[in-house]
Design a protein around this nucleic acid. Structure first.
Length: 493
DNA sequence: GATCCTTTGAAGACA
DNA sequence: TGTCTTCAAAGGATC
C-alpha cells in the first residue's frame, strides 16, 4: 500500500526557528498549560504521528474512547490562550462586555473576538462560506449596522457574551461533519467501526442514522470531483524535464499515440483527491474564523495566519488533528485501495515556481522590498516588536483595519474597528511587553480612532497621531497600500 | 480560464 | 537516506 510514510513534519519545524510566535497568557494561570507546538521537537511530533501510524498499521492501541472526536473536543481547553480575550469595554447598553477568560476556557472558547453581535444567529460551519458577516463583493467584509453605539467607545467586545454562542458552534465543529467535506461515496463499503470512529466526513445519508445528528450539516462536497480543465494529462515539466509520475506511458515516444486516448480516459475517471493532512483539516476548520476576525480575504494571507496559529497550537490540540488526518488517510485507503498520491501527481500543467524569488507578482514580496523587510517578515510588520502599524480604512469607509506587531505576533490578524470620532479600540500588546499580570488593561494599547472626510483614518496611539490611507484591512496594508501616497505609518506602541 | 500565492503535511520520485 | 516535488483547501490577484 502506498500509504506508508517515512517522513514526519519537517518544514513546520524549520519555521519554528524563524517564525516568531508570542505565547500569550490567559488571565488565569494557564501558562503552564500552554505548550506551543514550536517547542515541539521533531521527535515529539514524530512520536505523535508514530503513535497514530502504529495504530494505522494494525497495532491497534487500546484507547479508552473511540467515540467521535468532536465529542471529545467539547471539553478540552481552547486552542489558543491569549491574554487579551477580555474586553474592558462595555456594550452600548452598558452591560459587561463579555466572558472572562477563565470562563471562556471552560466553554472551550477560541480566543477570537467576534463581531457578530446577533445572539440569535448561529454562525454557519466553516466550510459553508457564510461568515457572520455580509460579504459584499465590492465592499469586502461588511457587517450589519453595528455602529449604533454612543459615546465613542468601541462597541465590539473582543469577547462578548454572545461568544458563548460562538463557542457553541465552534467547538463541536472542530471535528464535526459540518466542517469537513464528505468525500466518500455511499456505495463503497464502510467499516462500521471506522465509520463510527470517523463520522465527520460522511454525510448522514452515507452513514448509519446514528450519526446523523442535527449538528451534522453536511456539505455535499465530495473527494471525488469531476475532472476539471485543470486536470489535463501531464506534460513534460520544462524545468525538471520530468514527465508526470502517474502516467506510465508518458514517454515522448508514447505520448503522441496515447495522449488523446488517455486524455479521454482521464476525463472519464473521477478525480480522487488526496486526504487532507492535519494542517489542512485545521485550516478548513479555522479559516472562516480568521476571515471573520479581520478584513482579510486573501487566502494567502489567511494561510499565513493559520500557519502561525498552527505553530502556536498546543501539542494536544495538534495531536487531535494528526489523529483526524490519520483517520482520513485510513478511511481514504479503505475507500480507494488502489489510489495513491501518485495518481494525482500530474493533474495538470501547473508547475510551481517556488524557487523563483524574483516573482514580481507577489504582493508580500513587493511589500517586503518596499519597506526593507527580510523575507521572513510577514504583514509588512517592522522588525521591532514594539512597533505597530495602522493599516488602512476599509472599503466601506466605516471601519478601519488596524494591525500592530503585537497583534500579528499574537494572533496574526488585524483588528477591524469602526471609525468614530474619538472612538477607542485596544490593540493587544505583545507578550514581551505585557506582564503576567491579570490586568487586562496593562496588556493592551488604547487607540483613538477618528474618521476623515477623504476616507483616510486617523488614529492616535498613546498620544501619537498617525494617518493611514484608504485600502482594505490589515492585509491590505501589504496588498493594496503600495501607493506612495498612502504608506502605512508605523508608530511606537 | 489558468495559474499564483501561502501555509503544513503526506508521499512518491530521484540522486 | 536525504532532498525535491506535488497536491491537498481557499479565494483574491495576476497573467
Amino acid at each position: 500500500m502506498p500509504h506508508t510514510h517515512s517522513r514526519h513534519g519537517s518544514s513546520g519545524d524549520d519555521l519554528c526557528s524563524t517564525d516568531e510566535v508570542k505565547i500569550f497568557k490567559d488571565e488565569g494561570d494557564r501558562e503552564d498549560e500552554k505548550i506551543s507546538s514550536e517547542n515541539l521537537l521533531v521527535e515529539e511530533k514524530s512520536s505523535l504521528i508514530d503513535l497514530t501510524e502504529s495504530e494505522e498499521k494494525g497495532h491497534k492501541i487500546l484507547r479508552p474512547d473511540h467515540s467521535p472526536v468532536f465529542n471529545k473536543l467539547d471539553t478540552h481547553a481552547p486552542s489558543f490562550n491569549m491574554g487579551y480575550l477580555v474586553s474592558p469595554y462595555t456594550y452600548a447598553n452598558g452591560t459587561p462586555s463579555g466572558l472572562p477568560v477563565t470562563m471562556a476556557n471552560k466553554i472551550g472558547l477560541p480566543p477570537f473576538f467576534c463581531h457578530n453581535a446577533d445572539p440569535l444567529s448561529t454562525p454557519p460551519p466553516a466550510h459553508c462560506g457564510i461568515p457572520p458577516y455580509q460579504l459584499d463583493p465590492k465592499m469586502g467584509l461588511t457587517r450589519p449596522a453595528l455602529y449604533p453605539f454612543a459615546g465613542g467607545q468601541y462597541p465590539y467586545p473582543m469577547l462578548s457574551s454572545d461568544m458563548s454562542q460562538v463557542a457553541s458552534w465552534h467547538t463541536p465543529s472542530v471535528y464535526s461533519a459540518s466542517s469537513f467535506r464528505t468525500p466518500y461515496p455511499s456505495s463503497l463499503p464502510i467499516n462500521t467501526t471506522l465509520a463510527s470512529d470517523f463520522p465527520f466526513r460522511f454525510s448522514p445519508s452515507l452513514l448509519p442514522s446514528v450519526h446523523a445528528t442535527s449538528h451534522h450539516v453536511i456539505n455535499a462536497h465530495t473527494a471525488i470531483v469531476g475532472v476539471s480543465s485543470k486536470q489535463e494529462c501531464g506534460v513534460q515539466d520544462p524545468t525538471t524535464n520530468r514527465y508526470p509520475r502517474n502516467l506510465e506511458a508518458k514517454h515522448p515516444s508514447n505520448v503522441q499515440s496515447n495522449e488523446s486516448k488517455e486524455a479521454t480516459n482521464d476525463k472519464k475517471k473521477p478525480h480522487i483527491k488526496k486526504p487532507l493532512n492535519a494542517f489542512m483539516l485545521y485550516m478548513k476548520e479555522m479559516r472562516a474564523k480568521v476571515v471573520a476576525e479581520c478584513t482579510l480575504k486573501e487566502s494567502a494571507a489567511i494561510n499565513q495566519i493559520l500557519g502561525r496559529r498552527w505553530h502556536a497550537l498546543g501539542r494536544e490540540e495538534q495531536a487531535k488533528y494528526y489523529e483526524l488526518a490519520r483517520r482520513e488517510r485510513q478511511l481514504h485507503m479503505q475507500m480507494y485501495p488502489d489510489w495513491s498520491s501518485r495518481t494525482n501527481a500530474s493533474r495538470g500543467k501547473k508547475r510551481k515556481r517556488k524557487q523563483d524569488t524574483n516573482d514580481g507578482g507577489n504582493n508580500m514580496k513587493k511589500c517586503r522590498a518596499r519597506f526593507g523587510l527580510d523575507q521572513q517578515s510577514q504583514w509588512c510588520k517592522p522588525c521591532s516588536p514594539n512597533l505597530g502599524v495602522i493599516s488602512s480604512v476599509s472599503n466601506n469607509g466605516s471601519s478601519v483595519g488596524i494591525t500592530s506587531n503585537a497583534a500579528v505576533n499574537s494572533i496574526g490578524v488585524g483588528m477591524l474597528a469602526p471609525i468614530v470620532s474619538g472612538g477607542t479600540v485596544m490593540l493587544p500588546n505583545s507578550s514581551s511587553s505585557s506582564s503576567s499580570s491579570s490586568s487586562t488593561s496593562s496588556s493592551h494599547t488604547h487607540v483613538q480612532l477618528m474618521a476623515t472626510n477623504n476616507g483616510n483614518a486617523v488614529a492616535s496611539l498613546n498620544g501619537i497621531t498617525v494617518t493611514a490611507g484608504g485600502g482594505g484591512g490589515a492585509a491590505s496594508a501589504c496588498s493594496q497600500q503600495l501607493s506612495p501616497q498612502a504608506p502605512p505609518t508605523y508608530v511606537n506602541l
